[in-house]
Simulated assay, not measured.
Amino acid sequence: MFQGCSELKTLTLGEKFTEITEEMDLHSYNGWANANEPTKRISGEHENAVIKNEGKNTYIRIRRVPYVYYLRYPTNIKVEYSENYHQVRITWDKVEGADRYGIAVYLAGKWRIQTSKITETTYTSPKNLTPGKTYKVAIAARVNGKWDTANAIKNAVTCTIGDNNSYVKPDREIKYGSELYVIDDEVTMYLGPDTSYGKVTT
């Protein structure tokens, strides 16, 4: 019936036309949908469409849309330190499609989940964290019911609780040189992995 109708993009069926079967040769392409729900495929998974029709309905061919890749883990992670309460506030960019976020901290050789019920893009730690202690923190997102913990761990950040600041380790480290500008009475310098922190005073 529909053989050779490759340009057909819209189809209206009356109430007496109750079904389009596979034998009618209506090609599925990307699928057919009711015009009232244009993104919901109702034509089956076969090469030819199978449509059950009730009443008078208009059906349309689903258009192919470009594939868009979204990151499934938080990025642009920032840490703010409260001197008064010795706690940190962590923020990150929203992950497309995420309905939950989780925080894990690396302690005693293991990743330990602190919470997995965060619905916003911010987390405030418990109070009275130990000044000078370094924490490695991973933030995961749940998208379509799945947690991407692998990328969360790969992109974990390291922060050190300080009297005046917290430090987030950058993706790329550059050795400090002779040009050092002191912008405060006391500045904590990060000297690289496995190196102690040094302070410069004015």
Results as ranks from 00 to 15, higher is better:
residue 1 M to V: 09
residue 10 T to G: 02
residue 12 T to P: 07
residue 13 L to I: 02
residue 18 T to P: 05
residue 18 T to R: 11
residue 18 T to D: 11
residue 20 I to S: 07
residue 20 I to C: 06
residue 23 E to H: 10
residue 26 L to A: 00
residue 27 H to V: 15
residue 30 N to A: 14
residue 32 W to M: 03
residue 36 N to L: 15
residue 41 R to G: 00
residue 42 I to Q: 01
residue 47 E to P: 01
residue 47 E to G: 04
residue 48 N to H: 13
residue 61 R to Y: 02
residue 64 R to T: 14
residue 65 V to G: 02
residue 68 V to F: 03
residue 69 Y to S: 10
residue 70 Y to I: 07
residue 70 Y to G: 06
residue 73 Y to D: 06
residue 74 P to D: 03
residue 82 S to T: 05
residue 94 K to Y: 11
residue 95 V to L: 06
residue 98 A to C: 06
residue 99 D to Y: 05
residue 107 L to T: 13
residue 109 G to F: 10
residue 114 Q to M: 14
residue 114 Q to H: 09
residue 118 I to Y: 05
residue 119 T to H: 01
residue 119 T to Q: 10
residue 120 E to M: 09
residue 121 T to C: 15
residue 122 T to C: 09
residue 122 T to N: 06
residue 124 T to M: 10
residue 126 P to H: 09
residue 128 N to T: 02
residue 129 L to P: 03
residue 129 L to N: 05
residue 133 K to W: 11
residue 134 T to Q: 09
residue 138 A to G: 04
residue 138 A to M: 12
residue 138 A to D: 05
residue 139 I to N: 02
residue 141 A to T: 03
residue 144 N to D: 15
residue 152 A to H: 05
residue 155 N to I: 09
residue 156 A to M: 06
residue 156 A to D: 05
residue 157 V to W: 02
residue 163 D to M: 03
residue 174 I to M: 13
residue 175 K to T: 12
residue 177 G to A: 07
residue 178 S to T: 10
residue 182 V to Y: 11
residue 182 V to G: 05
residue 186 E to V: 13
residue 188 T to P: 00
residue 189 M to R: 11
residue 191 L to K: 08
residue 193 P to W: 08
residue 197 Y to M: 09
residue 198 G to K: 15
residue 198 G to N: 13
